[in-house]
Design a protein around this nucleic acid. Structure first.
Lengths: 361, 361
DNA sequence: AACTAGTCTGCAATCGTTTGCAATAAGGAT
DNA sequence: ATCCTTATTGCAAACGATTGCAGACTAGTT
């Protein structure tokens, strides 16, 4: 008995045979042309090379067979994957979902898929993760994790991998970034507090390694000076992470050192909520005794008691803006590193009021 | 002048030449062996085929050149991508980040990357998205979006694509799923309320199309019957989405129909927070006049006023469990569809108390 | 001494596209 | 009629890995 060299696919059925969609070759066979012709018809850039009648025939076949290009093969051949990596410090932090949402929305709209990774602060694990993403040939990266001096950014620059920073930026301006105007934000906060009559104001600063922590503190100090607050009137306590417990302990320290302050400007809503706890614990009422201001206007702070006065940042827009930047940067061409600074706004709610006329002991 | 056929790579410099890592062939050349040998050395499964001395030499070369397998090429050849898709209804919903976190954690640990997509309820856009993921040859899917009768699940089954549902499940049990015991949870809630002395209890039900909405309502009704509450004593209002405003309006309707109820069991924390608002609006105090119970124990509900009594679900564990299931399912072999049901627990806080002895008018 | 069995490694095809180059045909200019 | 463009399509080589098959060599058996 003579064996045909190759009938169809021998298809050794290892497990449930995954149903594969039609391939270029099959479409070509159906339309009676060469695979390359099909490719050219289907790619907008080369569509013009092919005569209209042939193109129509090919498109018909493609539609008939339900052809979808295999993006893995495309990636291999072209070297671009239409994948971008998004690195987040903490998915569970309420600030990031809107950013992420904005990022993925724009990217999907531009035909990119996103690989999302939550990374620890640990540098080595970060680099390892980037390695993996590069292995997957991501076309670009969105970093929401940048510290003011970030080795990951350096690494990407060396690898010529397009990167956009979002929310946090680094000290040097080596790559594009989209951030909120943190200094300006603190100015708004201070203007508000001072106009209410506060002069003894404390600041719960974020980590100094992050641009948000650094710049907000700077904003606080500049603004304090602008309002001619003395060194005795203002106080700063630094935290090592944006977390409620950090806010609690930092507020305690603040109150220990300055028992007579009448307002606290926190670098972050979670810190502010921590302040709520610490104040309650010490028997202070907010806002009657001490006013509190947060930062970020994250979900639910509007229904705390008291509703938190805070700085609103257009997080979603921040994300979509960053994605937009990345898309233009990935399409090659010149890359004029851009820095987009979004304007924050103050949302006044119930946690700020005029300071008490006399300090209760 | 004679042109060398191909010196190195002609590398037409379109933009900044992306730095490519070493390839198999280069390692092979360095070690003086055939590429296939290198492949065999580096893949644990075939490592045994190669003599130890050769293997050592190859490994040395690989390390020296910093070789990393190109996963795109691997995908093309093997048909598996080590990518899984994760579909979420709403990244900004505080319930999903912990789930996501659990999922990605386990998957990364197993060498998978995750493509995360936020999808609209719209079925067509969902299917289109799945199409895209299949195009990318994802090895499996985690769905946090399942409705009780979900076309996406059907689609995946037809495509023989491994799927695991998380948090929400479908009415039939065609695929593996990890969910919380929603009926049991409502029983805990009702036991708590009844033991406090409540009998006139309202339920803010979630969408009936979702297993959570459906089962929690069912749990409520079964439990009411078990406690011999009459049809007049209990009331249910359905919402069309898990959102605060929905909670507000549904609570209004509930109070309109049953002005004398003393407790509200919500199918979700956001609905419960909506109830807070509606109650305040009508001049009812929680928990003095009306007790409220939520569901999910999402972040921050512990510092609301009053702190919300709610059902705690191990969301992160739910995610990691689901990922685990998916991993075993993706490794092929037999796939014994499993249904993991996690036990919920009641967290009693300040929003529940004994009913008022007399109803204030 | 010949034959069989067993190790180890190389060969070459393949996954599904894209793309430089060559080939063909048609049309216009001379 | 010949030559040169120009438009259209096919050919075949990549991209970087995996893998069935076969060849070479060693060792063991009769």
């Amino acid at each position: 008995m003579k064996r045909t060299k190759k009938r169809d696919a021998p298809r050794k059925s290892d497990g449930p045979a995954r149903v594969r969609p039609a391939t270029l070759k099959q479409v070509a066979a159906d339309a009676g042309v060469h695979p390359s012709t099909v490719s050219r018809v289907l790619n907008p850039g080369t569509r013009g090379m092919i005569a209209d009648d042939v193109a129509l025939r090919v498109q018909a076949s493609a539609k008939k067979l339900g052809y979808r290009p295999d993006s893995v093969a495309v990636s291999l051949r072209t070297g671009r994957s239409r994948l971008v990596g998004v690195l987040l410090p903490d998915i569970a932090n309420l600030v990031f979902p809107p950013i992420l949402s904005g990022v993925t929305d724009v990217l999907h709209r531009s035909g990119y898929s996103t690989i999302i990774a939550e990374v620890e602060a640990d540098r080595d694990s970060q680099l390892q993760l980037i390695e993996q993403l590069i292995m997957r040939r991501v076309d670009g990266l969105v970093l929401a994790t940048a510290s003011r001096n970030d080795p990951v950014v350096t690494y990407c620059i060396e690898r010529h991998l397009p990167v956009v920073l979002v929310n946090r930026t680094e000290a040097q301006a080596r790559v594009s970034a989209v951030v909120s105007d943190d200094r300006k934000a603190m100015q708004l906060v201070m203007d508000h507090l001072v106009s209410l009559g506060h002069r003894r104001i404390g600041h719960l600063a974020g980590p100094a390694t992050l641009s948000t922590g650094f710049s907000r503190r700077q904003g606080f100090e500049l603004s304090a000076r602008a309002h001619k607050l003395t060194a005795k009137e203002v106080a700063v306590e630094t935290t090592v992470a944006y977390a409620r417990e950090e806010g609690v302990s930092a507020t305690r320290r603040l109150l220990d050192r300055h028992p007579d302050l009448t307002a606290i400007a926190a670098a972050n809503d979670l810190l502010a909520l921590g302040a709520y706890e610490a104040l309650r614990e010490r028997g202070f009422k907010c806002p009657q005794d001490v006013s509190v201001v947060g930062h970020n206007d994250m979900p639910l702070v509007d229904i705390m008691s008291p509703p938190l006065t805070t700085v609103r940042i257009a997080h979603r827009e921040m994300g979509s803006e960053a994605a937009q930047l990345l898309v233009t940067e990935m399409t090659g061409l010149a890359s004029p590193k851009r820095h987009v600074v979004l304007a924050p706004s103050l949302v006044v709610r119930g946690s700020t009021a005029a300071p008490p006329t006399r300090r209760k002991h």
